[in-house]
Nucleic acid binder design. Sequence first.
DNA 1: AGCACGCCGACT
DNA 2: GTCGGCGTGCTC
Length: 845
Amino acid sequence: MSLTFDFVQPEPAATDRITLFADVILPLPLPKLYTYRVPYEMNDDVVIGGRVIVQFGAKKTLSCIVAAVHETPPALYQAKYVLEFIDDAPVVTQPQLKLFRWMAEYYMCTLGEVINAALPSALKLSSESRIQLHPAFVRDEPAYPLSEPEEKIVVALSTEDGKAMTFTDVGELLGNTNFHKVIKSLIQKDVIFLFEHLADKYSPKVVKKVRLAHHFVEENVLEGLFQQLAGRPKQLDVLMRYLQKVPVYQNVHANHQGTEKASLTSSPHLSPSAVNTLIKNGVLEQFDVIVSRFPLDDSPEAKMPFTLSEAQLTAQADILKQFTEKDIVLLHGVTGAGKTEIYIELIRKALEGGGQVLYLLPEIALTAQIVTRLMRVFGTRLGVYHSKFSDNERVEVWNGVLSGRFQVVVGVRSAVFLPFDNVSLIIVDEEHESSYKQYDPSPRYNAREVALMMANFQGAKTLLGSATPSVETYYQTRAGRWGLVSLTKRFGEAGLPEIELVDTRKSRDAKKMLNHFTPELMSEMERKLAMQEQVILFQNRRGYSPFINCLDCGWIPKCKNCAVSLSYHKHAHELRCHYCGFHDRMPVECPACGSRNLKTVGFGTEKIEDDLKVMLPQANVQRMDLDTTRAKNSYQQIISDFENQVTNVLVGTQMVTKGLDFANVSLVGIINADSIIHYPDFRAHERAFQMFVQVSGRAGRKGKKGKVIIQTADPAQVIFDKVIRNDYLEFYEYEITQRREYGFPPFMRVIRMTVKHVDQLVAEQAAILLTQELVERLGREAVLGPEAPYIFRIRNFYLQEITIKLDREHTVLKHAKGQIAAAINVVKDQKEFRQARLVADVDPM
DNA sequence: AGCACGCCGACT
DNA sequence: GTCGGCGTGCTC
């Protein structure tokens, strides 16, 4: 408990009673905390970071987090009472609260929004929460005695099969007496479980187990049983196996735990029917046990040792040495240099020191392979936090961190929200990845920056890893503030791939293009496939074609909600908008002129796949993009098919650039490099360089030299030269000069304001006013715009953008954010702009 | 974010 | 004459 009160004086007189107030964080986008009064008799129950239930407004009952407790009554209003206290220990720890406050301030959002993003929804009880009888609960023999109100609920829930009750129902049933306590108690006793109204149907993971019926446990009775079963060899086998698994002779109590039913039926000479007969005859009894979704498998073979190479050892020593002087170190290692092994060693060392470890990875790099590898080393101490996880699994990880069960967590962006309180090492792998930045729902945070702040608050060291570090990060190492360790050799004998530029314009002029393939790429593919080697093709656009065009009247289908053309998806036979999800059937004829001459223009992954199936009929081609990986296990399926060489060619979007380490890939093709380079953004070159180098890294592993072919209409562009020589430093020098000259990060901070309104004119006017207000407060030179972005309408909202550039200095930044907030308020106070949405994105990517 | 209060159109 | 549209203001 984080709060202590001075109750030393014995029996305080009633008039001396302390009145406490709790400032709570509501899970809503409200700018401030709300103060509720704690009932006297509950003074001991307030926990900072614990959940409480309050009435908010006339109707709503919300669960929220206590952020502070004090004795100052609000001057301007009468505080309502806290209705109930749910937790007797914090679910949100003090270090988390501190970090969340920082996030809210830095990313210009409310604490409520941060809390909302942070808490797994199963921790957010709302009036929509419902309860249901636990499937493993047997009414006639409860494991714990039930109180009267508890019994009442059980009866009500038992009347119908699988009946659910809302909190309101429970309240009515019990006459509104502190029913949350009752519910919580029932949950603890595994009598009921809680689920969110619309959330997927929770089913606790249940394992069928069997044990010896209790009257057989005694040794002499057991002997008698053997006699009885003498003529039934199958059943005897099962029994012997059971006694082998559960040493009832040595330890009578072991029988209570029993063993998994599956363990008695799995091996071939044991028959499941014999097990069932034993159960039927009352020799064995079957029972259900709820198990963790993260099994406790601490088998001894788990601790698989491995040895680091000379280069890895040197790098590791260097990192540790730099950590003695610096809190942040960048491990700049070429793809395939073996960074993961170094991470594992460092994690092991950090754990020996008693601290927690957070290992962040981008979504697409967090694969089953890496988790298995980490599991082998860290066993049950490892927690995994992934976006494909169900809410129940998330809560298990959250609680596991709180209880200390998980000391290492490998996870994606949102893992920075977990309740760490003693982190000693944070690893941010692929630190340059833009997927660490959350864009759409607020908080628009960058997990790398949040991780750095968490490390700062908790005195941890941070290791950033990348083959292509972000310019901002590398700048910090150059300035000497952060450490730098480089790994320039690939693990094993694998050399870096040979990169060849192929001029698409030349081929096109010579009429030699085969669909979107140059003859060079085509013949190289054929050659590699003939050698039974695999190919990865990268095309940064999904769908079949980005738009279609009527050859007779020029009609191009556009999205009705967004200012974009609709992409053609051949397989689904649809036209789709990639911004709002609108879709429509592909028309047979032009709706404008009736012509049937509809032509696809441009190409995406689907067309590449389609063409290849015709051009390389002997090859097995698979596509990996958002459309083919939507289903739950499809991503893993595609990867394992490719790994097992079921597929020969993998065509994909950015997904193919990360984390796929396959020894047999000897060719990588980038179909259209130009679309990546020409992007209206100051980070376009950085992103392009990173993408090319990362995807190139997929070619050639384990001693095989790979080849990369980049198709471009303009091979003379400066960036290619640096990609071909894999010269990060040269790229950095070139890029940093540009950044300095044009005043971009790391020299300046960028805050991007977006103004949205359904009416284009109003959006423009609001943006103009906002710009004026910003200029007034921050100066003309700090404010750029307003300007309509390239895609100026999304989901029926017209957009206007304003870019604010600020000095990096902390105090300036803090002051500026106050000024921006003030400017936003001026616009918002204008009643014609009430409907406008003004969004600030700090450090946009 | 919701939800209530409040002032102007198409309906029994 | 009313039911209901969603604009705007508040929630401790």
